[in-house]
Each structure stands twice: as structure tokens, then as C-alpha cells.
Design a protein around this nucleic acid. Sequence first.
DNA 1: GAGGCGATGTACCGTACGGTACGGTACACC
DNA 2: GGTGTACCGTACCGTACGGTACATCGCCTC
Lengths: 226, 226
Amino acid sequence: MTSATAIKDDFTSRQQEVLEVVLQLMVDEGDGFSLARVARAASCSKETLYKWFGDRDGLLTATVRWQASRVHAGDYSGGPLDGDRLRSHLENFAANWLSVISSPTSIALNRVAVGQAGSGKSRLGTIVLANGRMAVADRLKPLLDAGRATGLLAFDDTEEVFRTFLGLVGRDVQIRLLLGEGPLPDNQKIAADAKRAADQFLALFGTEEGGRPNTGEAVGSGRPAH
Amino acid sequence: MTSATAIKDDFTSRQQEVLEVVLQLMVDEGDGFSLARVARAASCSKETLYKWFGDRDGLLTATVRWQASRVHAGDYSGGPLDGDRLRSHLENFAANWLSVISSPTSIALNRVAVGQAGSGKSRLGTIVLANGRMAVADRLKPLLDAGRATGLLAFDDTEEVFRTFLGLVGRDVQIRLLLGEGPLPDNQKIAADAKRAADQFLALFGTEEGGRPNTGEAVGSGRPAH
DNA sequence: GAGGCGATGTACCGTACGGTACGGTACACC
DNA sequence: GGTGTACCGTACCGTACGGTACATCGCCTC
């Protein structure tokens, strides 16, 4: 996988300015913007755009790649692990992931990529997938594996359990946001959702050694009915 | 909410033929199709399209409304409930929902709606949301409430637990499909995923009375590591 | 079979966009 | 000072699209 700095070095600072403008236009108006609009907003000429990025699709691809290289979710780096640390890391990953998918930039980018995937004109969807979901997978899976090695987690297939984690965290948030349902969750809501997801995840895959601190409380949604 | 039959009655059979063609074009080429293309494929004149649907957006909206009215996921209708029946119903809902979101039609429709939500030009996203996710919510929530009333489930907030169910079932499937990642899951994969999701859901929110039949087996991903 | 009506097919208009070409300018290097 | 390069701004071209106007055709009614 291409590293973030390598991608960053692919573009001059002036080019990055232009990509920043494109990103802003995506957020503001979806992918319906014209190159003339980009040129005007970025104070550059259309000819330069074509020279730098080839065509419209190349500009979109460059923007997606560049933005994706700036997104980093999660920070587990192989430290020692116990029940509390594992829980904390999971919660951290969850909150980070929710922040990413709730950001206007991510929403705009995913909208464009989804639209392109429909037209089948380019591989933006693959790029977004590779740099978003796969990036967090690369960071989270070592944590899951470490949790299993330590005996705190029990599961077979890392990919499967990773996807369940994403499901518990994101639920239907991303598709709802993409479809325009607002408002965006604030930090408090994100933190609460991250905690709930981590609790539920540990309830499903945690072992006794890593038992939850809140024994007796249901992990579902606060107070149980009985 | 407008019922399916009422929506169906909104269009003559000839109009429904046209909408079917639009749907097919959406599946085949995304939302980049022109009205001339629709007219040619449907053997009708552009003027008729404008007369019937107002403008392009009206045509899209009509298509989404019409197709959404044909989707029905799940079939719980308030019968008696025990542990096995609840599990079976949940699995059924899960499989049905996975089938819907994996269908080419649903994918195409959601792509168009996401694109429109980005441009902010219409409320297609709301319509898709209302007829897809909300429809299954209306059908599933009574089952969840009945499960709680019977003592088989324990939770507080029906909406919250419903969304967790969707998360366990769909995980990141929908967004991956929208981004163009294939292939579409077959029936066997869907059935397996539905079973897994139902197991995990019951592990989180089931009570002892509704204990799982497969005692001792981990709900995560088949054989546990230890 | 005459007339009305709804639908089809097509020609047309205005516009907006992607992409190209060209003149002008700032700056670096010789 | 001359030359080359990179960029900006803008005018331009071809095309495709949304939307409209109009001529024609089939069908139903009287």
C-alpha cells in the first residue's frame, strides 16, 4: 500500500491547494461541479488542471487519493494489553471511525465515489474503500489478534469479527448520512455510541479473563427491562 | 404512510412499463441516462414523459417511489412467540433484509438517491430511507416489542436495538456494494450471515428463557479459538 | 367515417459542460 | 537583454442534455 507521505509528495503545494478547493466544492455542491468552477475557485486555469490531472476523472481520483492519505483512524501500536486497555482501544477505534464517517468531507467523498461506481467510469469506489475501510482494518486487526493471543478475545476469523465490529459501531449511520439524513452526530453522541459498541463487541467476543467492569449491567442500551 | 397499493394506483400500467424501463436503465448505467434514452427504450415520446412526470427529477422520484412500494421485507404478524419462533423470525428478517440491499435494483436506486442527496436537488434520499429502512423498521419493531413483552428479549429503546440489529445483519455490506465492490452475495452466504446475525443479536439481548439451542457454541464466527 | 384525443416520433432551442487553443505575464536561467 | 518555462485568464469548439413545439398516427366515440 502506498504510504501517506508518498502520496503527499506526488503533489506540489500549489496542486494541493487546488485539491483542497476541489474537496471544498465536493462538500458544498456534490460532484456536480464543473472544471470551470474549480478553476475559478482555485484561481488557476483550466489548461493547468488538464495538464496536471489529465481529465476530470483524474482530478477526482487525485482528490480522493490525497484526502484519503490524510485520514488516520486509530492508534494501536502493539503495546501491552489487559482488559481495560483492550476496551479503551476498541472504544477509541470506534469513536475515531465514527468521527471519520460522520465528517462532511468523508460524506462528500463517498457520495462522489458511489456515483462514479454507478456509472462504472472509474475505480474511485475501490480507492475510497482501500483508503478508508481497509486502512482502519490494517490498524484494528493487529489489536484484535493481540487480544486473541492474550486470551482476552475468542474468535476464529479476524476479517469476520472485524466486520462485525464495524457493524456494531457504524450500524446504519453511514448510509443514512449518505442519503442526506441529518444532523451529523456530535462528539458526545459519538462517544456514547463508541462505548456501547465496545461493550457489545466485548459481550460477543470477550472471554472471562477480560470480563467487563460493569458486571450485571446489560450491554444493550442502558437499563434492561428486567 | 402511503400504502403500496395506493402508490401502485398512482400510475397506469403503461406508466409502470416506463418506470420499469427507467429502473432497468438505472441498474445498467447508473443515473447518467438521458430522457431521450428513456424515451427510446420505453418507446414513448419525451413529451409524454414530461406530461406524466413533470421533469427529470419527477421521473426519478416516481421510479423510486414505485419500486420502493414493491419491496417488502419480513412478515411477522403478531403470532405466538417462543425462543425458537423468535429466532426463526429474526433470521428471516435478516435474510430478507440482506436480499433486499444486495439486489441490483436496490443498489442502483440507492446510488441514485445518494447522488441526488449530494447535489441537494431533491428528497430522493428521504424517500428511499422511508420506504426501505423505515419499512423494515415498522415490521420488525413489533416483533422486538413482542419479544420483550414475552420476556424473551431485554432492552430499553426499541429504535436503538433495532439499529443494532441492522448493524449486525448488514455490517458494512451496503456501503461496500454501493462503492462497487463485488460480487453480490448468493443465497447461501445470505442465509449464513442471517443466522450469525440472529445468534449474535440473541446473545446480546436474549434472556435465559429464550436461551439458544446451540449451547456452548460461540456466536462469533463458528468454532471458538478455545 | 368524421372528429376528437392521447400518444408517438422528431426536429429544434438554449444551455452547460469537457476539453483545447491562444495570448499575456512572471520568473528563472544563460 | 534574450530565451525558455510555467502558469493564468479567456475565448472557443463540439457535444450532449433538458425541455418544448409540432406533425403524425392509432383508437375511441358518436
